[in-house]
Structures are given as C-alpha cells and as structure tokens.
Design a protein around this nucleic acid. Structure first.
Length: 204
DNA sequence: TTACCGATTCGCT
DNA sequence: GCGAATCGGTAAC
C-alpha cells in the first residue's frame, strides 16, 4: 500500500472518484490512528456543475478547492456536521471528490469511541459526516496535503476496487441525470436520498 | 443587515 | 417514516 501522489489526483473529478474507490484514508491523532477504505464517493466540478461549492467562484470558504490537487477540503454543514473532499484541480478548473462512506480497517476501537451511536461496524463510516467523525476530521484539517508523507491525514492506494456502480448524487437537486456518485459493493454504502426539497414528497 | 436553507444525522413514532 | 438540532454562506433587501 503506497501513498497516492499529487499527479495521480490532478485529473478530472469523475476519474478521480473512480480512482479513489477502494483507497484507504488514514488519520493520525494523539489517541491513535484510524483508517477507512473508501466505498462511496461523489464528483463535484467547478465551472459547469451548479451543485459544486466552487461553481460561483473563489471565496474564503472554498479557496482550498482552487489550490493544488491532493489536498483536503473540509466544510461545515447543517450547523453540526463536517464533510471531507479531496481536491483534484485540473487545468485551472477546480474540482473535488466528496468522501461519502467507507469501511473502518484500522483503529476500530477508537472509531467506536468517536461514534458511540453506530449500531455496528458498517454504520461507523456510512455517510459523509460519519466518515469525518470516525477519522476525527474537522475544520482544523482543512487544506491538509494528503500526499505528504508526514501529513496528519493521508491517502493510500489499495486493492483494485472491482466492479464500480454509478448513480445520481445524494441530496443534490441539480444534474440528477448525470451519474456522478460512484460506489463499490459494500454494506457500508449509504442510503440514497433525493435532493431538492427536504424530503421527497409522496408520489400519489 | 437579515432571512433562508443546505453535499446530514439521530432519535422517536 | 418524520422532524428537530444548529450555523455559516449566499442572496435579497
């Protein structure tokens, strides 16, 4: 298992999303390491993607997405959760891959301590905010270079992902016809929810 | 300056 | 299956 390089991640977000499936993201902390094998991701691309945070241009919040590929972009949602993205800037077009779900492969005990609400092992990192939860990622890790050998958060290439499935992104109302969500077979893949209104209205 | 709402999760029914 | 918790960015006034 070797660390991914910045060059490998400086590609189109859709290709980066497929590349990252099956890869392992690991965090170091005083309490110990936790590593997660990615089983579900989503691609976001600036310019032509209205759902992307960088669609409307550079702001202090999203400036990391306009920087070098291979860095971590962390943002705060719903007043209580963090979501993590891997930047994959190409040809000046900002893009990122949202880490949606994974399987804990190292630091299981610490992961359980960080997420006591999880019913079982597969629930620990099933969902973007849960994934940042087990890894201990918050605003402090925004902008970390995942390709640096001594970074507190790192990304490793692991076994080939196998068959890759695709579908519309979760919680996103626009571009529903474009399958920018990718996952591999795993019990840790999160449940699909349609975007737009709070909840999908009953079809009657 | 203010109001609205989101790349969500959890607990209760 | 449904609604609350909770706050920063964005757009409108």
């Amino acid at each position: 298992m070797r660390q991914l390089t910045r060059e490998e991640l400086a590609i189109d977000p859709v290709d980066a999303a497929k590349l990252l499936l099956g890869c392992v993201i690991e965090t170091s902390s005083p309490q110990g390491p936790v590593a997660v094998r990615l089983v579900e991701v989503e691609a976001y691309r600036g310019g032509d993607d209205p759902a992307s945070h960088c669609y409307r241009g550079k702001t202090p919040r999203n400036e990391v997405m306009f920087g070098p590929a291979g860095h971590l972009y962390v943002y705060f949602v719903y007043g209580m959760h963090f979501c993590a993205n891997i930047v994959c800037l190409t040809d000046g077009v900002p893009g990122a891959v949202l880490l949606r779900a994974g399987e804990v492969v190292e630091g299981l005990d610490l992961a359980r301590v960080r997420r006591p609400a999880a019913r079982n092992t597969h629930d620990l990192a099933r969902g973007p905010a849960r994934l940042t939860g087990v890894l201990g990622i918050d605003r402090a890790q925004n902008g970390v270079d995942l390709t640096a050998p001594d970074a507190e958060v790192r990304i490793y290439k692991s076994d080939p992902a196998g068959e890759i499935f695709a579908g519309p992104r979760v919680g996103v109302a626009v571009a529903m016809d474009i399958p920018w969500r990718f996952w591999i077979d795993s019990p840790a893949v999160s449940a699909y929810r349609r975007g737009g209104k709070r909840r999908q209205p009953a079809v009657s």
